[in-house]
Amino acid sequence: MSSINNTIESYQQKLAISRLGLWLFFASDAFMFGGLLVTRFYLLGNKNLNLDQTLGLLVTSILLISSFFMNRAEVMVSEGNHKGFITSLVITILLGISFLVGVVGLEWGSAHFGPGDGAEGAVFYMMTGMHAFHVLTGIIFLSLVLRNGLNKKYTPEKHYAVEASANYWHFVDVVWIIYYPVLYLMGTI
């Protein structure tokens, strides 16, 4: 009996440690994204980048919806709803991929400047590129979670990997929540 209690306690302890570590990583990464934000305002000031607004709204909505399904996936795994968990996770991954296609495929292709065309191009490609890189790593994490989920590795009691990658996914969403108005909406043309 006591040994069972011990393992539960040590799992809880480990969980607390892992969560703290993950959040410290977010804090650290946020400084990097913050640095890019400073770069944008230092170089461009109150200047609008004049980008395709429809596309911008579209990719933003896609990422927001993906975050919603990510949340559902996490809740469902903690409730033991295996099928719902897998479905929501697959939807999240597909939406993540469409976000990448939208930004890297369409937006980069159709933008009216390249990375070498002055400060606007440099800032835009660096910010979207860095964010897209994080989305890509998020998709990789989620795919691994999906693989393990299909092999039924997660239980309602123990699914920290799901929680961690969900948190990472939401973190990437938070970054975009800030970057979207900064890149698309703010300033005058």
Binding site: L15, L20, I177
Partner: peptide, 26 residues
């Protein structure tokens, strides 16, 4: 943007789980 960020941090990322580790274990 700030309001949206706080909403996601609070309700999707459960920031209070790290501040108060006893809460919201699995």
């Amino acid at each position: 943007a700030l309001i949206k960020m706080l909403l996601v941090l609070q309700f999707f990322m459960h920031i209070n789980r790290v501040i108060n580790p006893k809460k919201g274990g699995h």
